[in-house]
Amino acid sequence: MPLGEIGRILLALVAVLILGNLWFRLVEWTLGRIKRLFLRQKDPPAWHPLLPEQEENDDT
């Protein structure tokens, strides 16, 4: 197989990969927006940040 043809096939595969990725991101983004629209009323889950360590007093 000539090198030019191999190059064209590889290029086509890369194009399919890029297109697939773009399509995946687009559908994910759209679904995310739709979900957010419906779940807007829900309260976010409670979150407790880790408290900074209390310094120990050794001078007793």
């Binding site: 409670a46 979150w47 407790h48 940040p49 880790l50």
Partner: peptide
């Protein structure tokens, strides 16, 4: 208790 890999916080 749900948390995150860096343990910066946790849920209920």
């Amino acid at each position: 208790v749900p948390t995150v890999p860096d343990l910066s916080g946790c849920g209920d």
